[in-house]
């Protein structure tokens, strides 16, 4: 599904380049759930944005193949159309564009690119309402401006709603658990677990073990100083919870 090989990437901020990823490698096979943990500033979110194609997040060396194709050569929207989805840590707000309009434009674009029939307005509404209910948001959220005035938890559930509507092959979730209460976390986990399938993969970027109590990962990786320094199964997450990141960083150094 996703093959990252010795990836280096920099972030261009105010014309100042900063190298963040320094030789990161990761293999994600269909159906797998990977958790990427690590201290602040280790490059977790950068990885998500480099994969999604954010401007100013530039790979300088290495490869990222998505289903065998060079992901880094594609425009942001092309990556999404091929089935990559990034659930944002901080979803943005757009006043004046309704949630529903936005999702329709997005789902239409993706389906069209994938050669699937575009849903007519009625079936789309029906599906959107059902998904809205699944993520436990009031139906009124469909009509509201995109994320406009949503609470942190509501925004995260809205990300999940988009993800469910788009049915991506690879879901990258950037700190979806931060800023949400336990009830919202359960809703999100339930949604993700419901979407797990042999041909869909997940990368969960998180600080905390808490999320992994609800979504059981196949692999846990520790990202430190721009590369993966340790990989293991879910027990690694428990160890991190107990001992912090210090011992791994020491081990890697």
């Amino acid at each position: 599904m996703l093959s990252i090989q010795d990836l280096y990437a920099k972030v261009i901020d105010n014309s100042e380049d900063k190298e963040i990823l320094k030789g990161l490698s990761l293999e994600v096979k269909p159906g797998e759930v990977h958790a990427i943990m690590g201290p602040n500033g280790s490059g977790k979110s950068t990885l998500g944005h480099v994969l999604a194609g954010r401007e100013g997040y530039e790979a300088t060396a290495g490869k990222a193949l998505f289903e065998g194709q060079d992901l880094l050569a594609l425009d942001t929207e092309e990556r999404a159309r091929k089935g990559l989805f990034l659930a944002f840590q901080y979803p943005i707000e757009i006043a004046g564009v309704s949630n529903m309009e936005f999702m329709k434009a997005s789902v239409d674009a993706v389906r069209l690119a994938q050669g699937l029939p575009v849903l007519d307005a009625v079936s789309f509404m029906k599906r959107a309402r059902a998904v809205c209910k699944e993520v436990d948001l009031d139906q009124s959220f469909l009509k509201r401006g995109l994320n406009e005035g949503f609470s942190g938890g509501e925004k995260k559930r809205n990300e999940l709603m988009q993800m469910m509507m788009l049915e991506p092959k690879l879901c990258i979730m950037d700190e979806t658990d931060s800023g949400v209460d336990i009830d919202a976390l359960k809703v999100i986990a339930q949604g993700v677990n419901g979407m797990r399938s042999p041909d869909r993969s997940f990368i969960l970027i998180t600080h905390y073990q808490r999320l992994l109590d609800f979504i059981e990962p196949d692999f846990v990786h520790v990202l430190a100083n721009g590369k993966i320094v340790k990989s293991g199964d879910k027990s690694l997450a428990l160890e991190l919870e107990k001992h912090g990141y210090g011992w791994i960083e020491d081990e890697a150094a």
Partner: peptide
């Protein structure tokens, strides 16, 4: 940032610009 968010959902740049502009006066 808004354009990036929209493109990350499969919407092409031009349409994203149009949607944003439209949203700006739609209120």
């Amino acid at each position: 940032e808004l354009l990036y968010y929209m493109c990350s959902r499969g919407i092409d740049r031009k349409s994203a610009e149009m949607m944003l502009s439209y949203g700006f006066v739609n209120e």
